[in-house]
Amino acid sequence: MGEPEQIVALIPRLRRYARALLGDRAAADDLVQDTLERAWLKLHLYQSGTNLRAWLFTVMHNAHVNRLRGRREEESLDESMYELVASQPATDGLLIRDLDRAVRSLPDEQREVLLLVVLEDMSYEQTAQTLGIPIGTVMSRLSRAREKLRLILSGQAASPRLQRVK
């Protein structure tokens, strides 16, 4: 299978990651489209024999970061909202119960690490390479992301209610 075919074969995984990253289907596919367009343009820069999946996810990460510029304020707002939510007692109706929303409440850089490790089952090293960060940063972001999810969902994690009814 040549590289173009391999890229096409990876589209479902790019879509899954983008969906978990952004939540919204249209926005996610938009990011995938942006990623693919960049990938086709830059395919000549890809070194044959290296990990094409990691390369594609790097392209997607760059596309995503590019889109986030100028939206930093919004994000820090989200962060402070999380603090508010987390400090609510577990019985409070405002507590975020939905896993999807809990994932979205994570800071972007933590969410990226979490999703590459959990959904893509990428090694910590590969995750570090893909995102261009040290492996220690991968570990600390992963740990913080998980702990936040646990806090947000605490009391819920063992419950079947965690699974969204489709």
């Binding site: 173009p4 890229i7 096409v8 589209i11 479902p12 995984r13 879509r15 899954r16 969906r19 978990a20 596919d29 995938v32 489209q33 693919l36 367009e37 086709w40 896993l99 999807d100 994932v103 979490l114 959990v118 959904l119 998980r146 999810l149 646990r150 969902l153 994690a157 063992a158 965690l162 699974q163 969204r164």
Partner: peptide
């Protein structure tokens, strides 16, 4: 448990039909 739930949550995306617009980005 949360990690398992996370995998289950997004697993179905893998089986969705790929929108045509994504396939036509290929030169």
């Amino acid at each position: 448990q949360i990690m398992d739930a996370l995998r289950r949550e997004y697993e179905p995306v893998l089986d969705e039909a790929i929108p045509e617009a994504l396939l036509t980005t290929r030169p």
